[in-house]
């Protein structure tokens, strides 16, 4: 039996606070700070290259409570983006050439305005990616979502930590693997995962434990073989993500006494090429209340975009945001270790 704990917020733990999470990381002995490593690589201060993606976090409500969740999402969370704030995102998109909207959460589909937002973004001619936990597609009120995705050519980016059930359930909760496979088969039945335009299906794997993935290509081949042979499931691409040492994953690292060696390993594996390709350089992140961040991780750590840049989507100014310096701290080592990690997988 795999038990996942309730959210940090509902347990009223100090680690539920972003300030305590950052302080926990700051207490660790590290040979060099992230900014020093950036400076050594000639990348300080980190600045955007070109903003191509607007990642919109439409809320922290989720039907799952995964052990590694950096959002501390769960059924008890109440933060949900309003339709008015979504409209502000649409207004910002309309006056920019940002080509992709990456919709995330929580389970973004649980936002009551999700479908309206997707339709409106598509009406602007922009590409939509939905970060989907798969199990939401098997709930009664969301079972028709695969057809909705297909109708609007939404790219579906799905979480599946491992091709083995026990591993997946250990991280995401009992029965999640089996339900996820059912959802993947329904997506496949609509043409998702077969290389067809408008039916792109990406799987996102992340380590079930305190280690990183060293070879995304090899993992993709393993996933393709195992899911194909065991379940007849196909997909277009696999992204490997590094677990960020924040929120519930940070809690697990602390409790399992893995935090110090994990952070040391991430810091030692700093790769300038991965840093150069970090997603914060081509993405701007919007919080459920419209606040702007450099990435979803900074969002969860209450680190807004730098002073002087527009800090709310109502004030969106692409040129000013492109000129900003990106806010960094020790958690950023998670994106720059080894092959790198981003919402689009490896970066180096």
């Amino acid at each position: 039996m795999t038990m996942t704990l309730p959210t940090l917020a509902s347990r009223r733990l100090p680690l539920a606070m972003a300030s305590e999470q950052r302080a926990t990381l700051r207490r660790l002995p590290l040979a060099r700070e992230f900014d020093q490593r950036l400076a050594d690589a000639g990348l300080a201060p980190m600045r955007p290259t070109r903003i191509e993606v607007m990642q919109v976090n439409v809320g922290r409500v989720c039907n799952q409570t995964c052990r590694h969740c950096h959002v501390d999402a769960g059924p008890d969370r109440r933060e949900v983006m309003s339709r008015d704030t979504m409209q502000l995102c649409l207004d910002a998109l309309a006056k920019s050439d940002i080509g992709t909207v990456d919709v995330t959460g929580g389970a973004p589909e649980m936002n009551p305005h999700f479908r309206w937002f997707v339709r409106e973004v598509r009406a602007l001619g922009r590409h939509v990616m939905d970060r989907c936990n798969l199990t939401i597609l098997e709930t009664p009120s969301h079972r028709d979502l695969p057809a909705f995705f297909a109708e609007h050519n939404v790219e579906v980016v799905c979480s599946l930590p491992h091709y083995l059930g026990a591993r997946t359930d250990r991280q995401r909760g009992d029965g999640v693997y089996e339900t996820s496979i059912r959802a993947l088969k329904r997506l496949n039945a609509l043409g998702y995962g077969s290389g067809v335009a408008g039916r792109r299906l990406v799987l996102v794997a992340n380590p079930v434990g305190a280690f990183t993935i060293s070879d995304q290509g090899l993992m993709e081949a393993e996933f393709r073989k195992a899911l194909g042979e065991r379940h007849g499931v196909v997909f277009d691409q696999l992204y490997c993500l590094t677990n960020m040492p924040i929120s519930r994953y940070l809690e697990w690292l602390v409790e399992s006494k893995n935090l110090a060696p994990y952070m040391e390993a991430l810091a030692n594996a700093f790769n300038p090429a991965a840093a150069a390709g970090a997603m914060c350089r081509n993405t701007v992140s919007v919080g459920w209340d419209g606040a702007l961040y450099d990435c979803d991780f900074n969002q969860m750590l209450d680190m807004p975009v730098a002073q002087g840049a527009p800090r709310h989507v109502r004030d969106f100014d692409l040129a000013a945001l492109t000129a900003r310096a990106i806010e960094t701290d020790r958690h950023c080592f998670g994106c720059t270790a080894g092959e790198g990690s981003s919402c689009g997988g490896a970066t180096a």
Binding site: Y163, L164, R167, F211, I213, S214, E222
Partner: peptide
């Protein structure tokens, strides 16, 4: 073991 984990291999 660490190398195996890093390419997605498990205790199984």
């Amino acid at each position: 073991t660490a190398q195996a984990q890093s390419i997605g291999l498990t205790m199984e």
